[in-house]
Structures are given as C-alpha cells and as structure tokens.
C-alpha cells in the first residue's frame, strides 16, 4: 500500500507543474496586460512601462516562469492591493469559513442523496423514484446564485425562520474561542452553546444552497450503481439465505454501490469550490469565495490567480485522496 501511495504521489508532480504552468499562462500570455490592469487603462504609458519592468514582464517567458515558480516556492501568491495584505495571508484568514461551509454542504449532500438514491433504486418507477428523478434534473439545472436568493426570500424575508444572510454568526454574538476556525467545531469544543446555535442557524441556508447540485448528482449516481449491484449474484445469495431486506440493501448492496459514488463525491469538491464563490457572495459569508468576488469587483487579479492555483491543487489532492481510499477499500485497484 505504501508503494502504491508513493507511486500516486509521484504521478501527481507533473499534474501540479501543469497546473502552475496554466496559471502562469493565464496571467502572462492571454491578451490582458497585467501592467495595464494594475495601473488602469487611463494610466500614462511610462507608468505602465515601469510596472512592466518591475514585474519582470520584459524578461523572456521561460525566465518569468522560473521566477514565478520560485515565488510560489516561498509561499508567495502576490499581494492583494484591495486589502493591502499578502494573498496567502488573506487566504489563511478566510479559509476556515469556506472549509466549514463546504464540509457542512458535503455532509448535507451525503445524508440526503444516499437515502434518496437507495429508495429510488429499490422502488424503481414508484412515485418516490419519479419525484427524486425530477428533483435530480432540477437540481442540476438550477443556478446556485438564483437558488440562494430564492431561499433568502422564502426563509428570511417571508417566513423569518432564518437569520439575516450576513455572515457566520449574529453581529451581537461573540464568535467562539478560536481553536480551529470552524465555528461549529470550536463552539462544541469550548461548550459555547449560544455560539453553536447561532453558527448552525447561519450556516444552514448557504449549506443547503451549495449542496443542491451535489445532491442531484450523487443521488443519480447512487441510484444507478444500486440498480447495477442489486441484480448481482451475491445480493441474490444474501436474499436466498434469508437475510432481512434491510441488511441486504444497506449492508451488502449499498457498501459496494458506494465505491463509484466516492469518485463522484471527490469530483464534486470542484463544483463545491466554484459554488462557494457564488454562495459566499450571496450570503455575505466571510470566506475565500466572497474574497474572490471582492477581488473581481476591485479588478485585483493576484487573488484570483492565487485562488485558481490553490483550488486546482486542492482539487487534485482531494481526487488523489479519493483514489487512495479507493485503493484501500478495493485491493484490485492498487494491484493493477
């Protein structure tokens, strides 16, 4: 297993280099001139020229790429001029909020999608199956930014069930003592029940909004892999030896049907990272996503490029972990 892990990690290196290269190309080769973007279109030509020289944009491309890698190697993603901080520093401050939102969304998606997928498959063509299939189709077609606003309108503006879509905790409530930066976990660890209640009530709506697309895709995936597995010999054997249906479905069929679902869950992290940018913007969630939207509005490109790079590497690492878990639970894969 260790050899398999090392081999996979080794294979990941060209991938990371490729990601760095593409991010570099995006910042240097595409028609937009970074110097003009920093100085503004109205800036005098000599100012733009000076910025070009100071940014090293006059150097040959391979040299610029080398400088870029060296800069990244020292953990420097550039400076965000709209906050005045280093991009990496801003990311570190805001990352826990995004992580918490993403994890809760994934949790909601898994808790909802798996039972729905199983019921759809075991009661194929029933009313439940039809409803879940229609919801799956809608879930994949509803833009996250629209859904978020509809949820705010219904649950905040009309029903008043949800707190104002303004951040992670009420303005008059103190955040829990900082341990991990994840408010729910920190409140639990410090026993701060007021902060716990507040942070849960604030995260529910954005997390539901972000999880909808994932629920749609995962439920469809669980349904189709369950349908495949249910017809296999070992499930028939389990039934034949008189096991209760619940055990046949959840212990024998579902565990095997979940293997392909795991891959989809890994791939869904990419969707969640993209979705977080939009969801955080709508719910004023102080994470990396809303920081990126602020950067877009301020035409501040260093954070956008830094985020593109970091999210792609993170996404790759998540999929790599999924592959490793896959290898762990299915020995056939690691011996291939």
């Amino acid at each position: 297993m260790i050899r398999y892990v090392l081999k996979r990690l080794l294979y990941a290196i060209p991938g990371v280099l490729g990601i760095i290269l593409i991010t570099f190309i995006l910042s240097r080769v595409l028609p937009g001139d970074p110097a003009v973007m920093i100085a503004g279109e109205q800036a005098p030509p000599d100012v733009i020229e000076n910025i070009r020289i100071s940014m090293g944009l006059k150097d040959p491309l391979y040299l610029q790429f080398f400088h870029y890698i060296r800069q990244l190697g020292s953990g420097n993603l550039g400076t965000a001029w709209h906050t005045g901080h280093l991009v990496a520093q801003d990311f570190a401050t805001r990352f826990p909020a995004t992580l918490e939102l993403t994890l809760v969304s994934m949790f909601i998606a898994v808790c909802f999608a798996i039972p729905v997928g199983v019921i759809s498959a075991t009661r194929k063509n029933s009313a439940v199956d039809h409803v879940s299939r229609v919801l799956s189709l809608l879930g994949a077609a509803i833009p996250i930014f629209w859904l978020g606003l509809v949820l705010i309108y219904i649950f905040y503006a009309k029903l008043g069930w949800s707190p104002a879509p303004m951040g992670r905790i009420g303005q008059d409530i103190n955040p829990p003592t900082h341990l991990t930066g994840l408010y729910i976990l920190d409140s639990l660890l410090t026993g701060d029940m007021v902060a716990l209640k507040e942070s849960i009530s604030h995260i529910i709506l954005p997390a539901i909004c972000l999880s909808t697309g994932t629920i749609a895709i995962v439920a469809r995936m669980v349904r189709s892999s369950m349908l495949e597995v249910i017809g296999l010999d070992y499930v028939r054997t389990a039934r034949a030896k008189g096991l209760p249906e619940r055990i046949v479905i959840y212990k024998h069929a579902l565990v095997n049907a979940l293997i392909p679902t795991l891959t989809i869950l890994g791939l869904q992290f990419g969707y969640l990272i993209g979705g977080a940018v939009i969801t955080e913007t709508i719910f004023s969630w102080p994470g990396v996503g809303s920081y990126i939207t602020e950067s877009i509005l301020a035409t501040d490109y260093a954070p956008i490029q830094g985020f593109t790079l970091v999210s792609a590497i993170l996404y790759m690492l998540i999929n790599l972990s999924v592959d490793l878990i896959y290898g762990l639970i299915d020995p056939r894969i690691r011996y291939e």
Partner: peptide, 17 residues
C-alpha cells in the same frame, strides 16, 4: 484538474470582463 467555474473565472478575469 481545474474546477470549471474557477477556470472560467480566471480566464474571463485575465482577458477582461
């Protein structure tokens, strides 16, 4: 390897909105 919306954002931002 890039999340699709993030890549689209990065490209659109690089070219200019």
């Amino acid at each position: 390897a890039f999340p699709s919306l993030i890549l689209a954002m990065a490209i659109a931002a690089s070219i200019g909105p």
